[in-house]
């Protein structure tokens, strides 16, 4: 490629997407071409405003130029207002091959298939260390092993006595 070529990667930085907690989105723009890209415009208006409130950063951004081998990292923060599964689509980036009156090229970013927003209690339940369950399990094992010990332990004693009598 003798001209600029951009690759756009959109990803979720937050490990867990929780209701009313910050959700960080990162958009990386790489110039893998051999020339400078001019007038780069990012447009990621794919988040439904009634579900995802924009907390920090902008969904729309602009950069003057991006040299070959260089990259841009753009991060913005959302706050999910509803729990459940939501679709998300690719962001769009436009750029020009030249500084003036050049042809505009559009690039579609990578996209994740969907975002699952869970409530804080759901998340806590999913990631809990489950001490209570482990405690119940140990108690149950102990309860089962006591009668087993009583039965087998007595048998063993009886055989020893019989052997002694002989």
């Amino acid at each position: 490629a003798t001209q600029a070529h951009l690759i756009v990667h959109k990803s979720v930085l937050s490990e867990n997407v929780i209701l009313e907690q910050d959700l960080h989105i990162n958009v990386q723009i790489f110039n893998v071409g051999e020339n400078v890209a001019y007038d780069i415009n990012l447009n990621d208006t794919t988040w439904a405003p009634e579900v995802f409130h924009n907390e920090e950063g902008l969904h729309v951004a602009n950069w003057e130029k991006l040299g070959p081998g260089e990259s841009i990292n753009h991060t913005y923060t959302l706050k999910p207002l509803m729990a459940g599964g939501f679709e998300n689509y690719a962001a769009y980036v436009s750029y020009k091959y030249g500084s003036e009156n050049a042809e505009v090229q559009y690039v579609r970013s990578t996209s994740f298939r969907g975002v699952w927003v869970e409530t804080a209690s759901e998340n806590a339940r999913r990631l809990a260390p489950r001490y209570r369950e482990w405690f119940i399990f140990i108690i149950l094992v102990a309860l089962l092993s006591v009668p087993a010990y009583l039965v087998f332990g007595k048998k063993k004693k009886a055989t020893t006595v019989r052997k002694g009598r002989r």
């Binding site: 070529h5 951009l6 690759i7 756009v8 990667h9 690719a90 090229q105 559009y106 690039v107 579609r108 970013s109 990578t110």
Partner: peptide, 8 residues
């Protein structure tokens, strides 16, 4: 036609 996309 003339579109560029990125695939992960």
């Amino acid at each position: 036609p003339k579109e560029h996309i990125s695939i992960l």
